[in-house]
Design a protein around this nucleic acid. Structure first.
Lengths: 338, 338
DNA sequence: TTGAAAGCGCTAACAG
DNA sequence: CTGTTAGCGCTTTCAA
């Protein structure tokens, strides 16, 4: 068993004063004589005294913990967002407890319960791709427990959220494909009930319209966000009588899965098919050809979500702010036909 | 402000009984009459009572928290290990607090302090690449606070640890290169004070010996684990008067950075230079050509580390067990010359 | 200038 | 069978 940390009591008995005196001395309370204060602070240092957060938490009814629920921790996208959240949390003296829903609504519900039972002071969450029902968030809202969504949000709930401008991104990509000679531009989308799927689809349609291309329903396929489904969706596109000359995938899993499948079927990127996706720089560069992609401001998204969280926490108001972060299109070889 | 959770006191006053009666009823203590028990439990359910972990922690002197320190959270390698740790932790009713050292010894020291001040019950850590001095772990060891290392360990401290069999892995790779016609096999290693660097180097040398190849010091280069340094190291190898016909990198960052650099310099993989690395499946497949690699059992490593941790925690003994996990060489196109 | 006491939520030993 | 009490570590009135 580990030895106990030093407590105020330890210091008090060692110096023959009362606990409250020690407590006051440590926060430089003017009532305590300077010399006693000095003596107490010195001993506290020697004994490496640090206040017991459990005792403080019990007293103040706060745990200094934020619950974070992500669909998956094993991706650069989420781990980078988590880094951003953690940075801000640390600055505020908070730490974060991460829970992964594994894209399952059931697990998301359990995570909410567990975290609440652990007395986190609030939640920062990215919905699982399955989540189409939101009653597990009602109790948070009713009890005014701080809640912030990021990336995937529920449009019906007026919950503060941080988003990337997916609509603009897909519109830009569509236009970019057009300007590089593509006319049959396909889009592999995610589950329709996710806001990010919907927004990106809107941008895609707007982009087509802007370029005076008629929308061909065959070129819009849906898939859940697994590698397997993304490959199937790609196959479906490639097998069309009149296959696409450009494809973009809604997230990095889809983009890379599409890339694997396109190569496997013997098509050349970008000459036969241009490709673009949403992903981070490192992986975009490492693949062949380097992937044109939308750079998601992940770290910033995490920071913004955490800052929003603390705004909620201190103001206690029901701000239903929505922050939309700009995105960037980084053009690489996968979309420039020779 | 969020509403308070229901407490034993709330239930007690509502039912007009004492707090201890409620407490006992909720754990089915035989002393309490069945009907009262039933009544109390029912109300507890309605009010969604869950014990306050802060109060429990204060009482039992335990926080049910494990501190986890990783060099970097933004890589598949570590996030996958974290998933493994988290799974086991959850099964034991613990949650984990993650802190990233960003490969800095200074930040590692701070992390240890912060986590200890947060009263985590122990630490599971992977050393930063800078860490060459270990006094910040002494207090843990002296106070018998559970500590487990994984992947990167301090050989001098008798701390329980989970490792992958890097020596065998590099020996296998070396032999594999040889069997595929390579004779000038280069190895890009990490910082020399890291155990993983040393072990993998030993395997490399053993492999050479086994294949009756004389060791050429020019073919062994060191770098820290950043992309930039790895690229420089690769350049250095490629500029040799007699450049290598095979390269392997000590981890995935190095392997991919080497791949980028080799291509950039116009060498063909695998025909000019065979390449292999340590990384996960998904990324190995997505690059071109698919990368021969050693599959690190990351999730298992996390699980094993957590299990070891709980063994320490309950037994309280000073087990200095060392678990070595097997690795697998997965041959793909990057190492098969045509 | 300092100490005593109450209370945050909970358990367990001790009384009734 | 149930209630009282003390105590985990800390802050904060209220008293001295």
């Amino acid at each position: 068993m580990s030895k106990r940390h030093t407590s105020l009591k330890d210091l008090a008995t060692e110096l023959g004063v009362s606990i409250s005196t020690v407590s006051r001395a440590l926060k430089n309370h003017p009532d305590i004589s300077p010399e006693l204060t000095r003596k107490i602070q010195q001993l506290a240092n020697e004994r490496h005294y640090t206040p017991n957060p459990l005792a403080m938490g019990l007293l103040r009814q706060q745990t200094k913990m934020i619950g974070v629920i992500v669909p998956d921790i094993n991706t650069h996208f989420y781990s980078s967002i988590i880094s951003g959240i953690e940075k801000v949390a640390k600055e505020h003296g908070y730490f974060i407890v991460i829970s992964s829903s594994n894209e399952s609504m059931q697990k998301e519900i359990e995570s909410v319960d567990n975290l609440l039972n652990s007395r986190v002071e609030g939640l920062i969450v990215c919905l699982s791709q399955e989540t189409d029902e939101f009653s597990h968030f009602h109790k948070l809202i009713e009890n005014e427990i701080p809640l912030v969504f990021f990336d995937r949000v529920c449009e019906d709930l007026s919950v503060p959220a941080v988003l990337a401008n997916g609509e603009e991104a897909t519109q830009m990509i569509t236009r970019h494909f057009y300007e590089n000679g593509c006319r049959r531009i396909a889009y592999i989308s995610g589950p329709g009930h996710l806001n990010i799927s919907r927004n990106r689809k809107i941008g895609y349609l707007k982009g087509l319209e802007e370029c005076h291309i008629d929308f061909d329903p065959q070129l819009l396929v849906n898939c859940n966000l697994s590698i397997e489904e993304a490959r199937l969706a790609t196959q479906q596109l490639l097998q069309l009588p009149n296959p696409p000359d450009a494809i973009f995938g809604m997230n990095d899993t889809i983009a890379f899965a599409a890339m694997i499948e396109i190569k496997k079927q013997g098509f050349k990127i970008p000459d036969d098919i241009s490709l673009a996706g949403f992903t981070d720089e490192f992986h975009s560069i490492v693949v062949d050809p380097p992937l044109t992609s939308v750079s998601h401001p992940t770290f910033e998204m995490g920071k913004a979500a955490a800052e929003l969280f603390f705004e909620l926490l201190v103001k206690g108001e029901n701000i239903s702010k929505r922050i939309v972060l700009p995105i960037d299109l980084v053009v690489r070889q996968s979309s420039i036909k020779n």
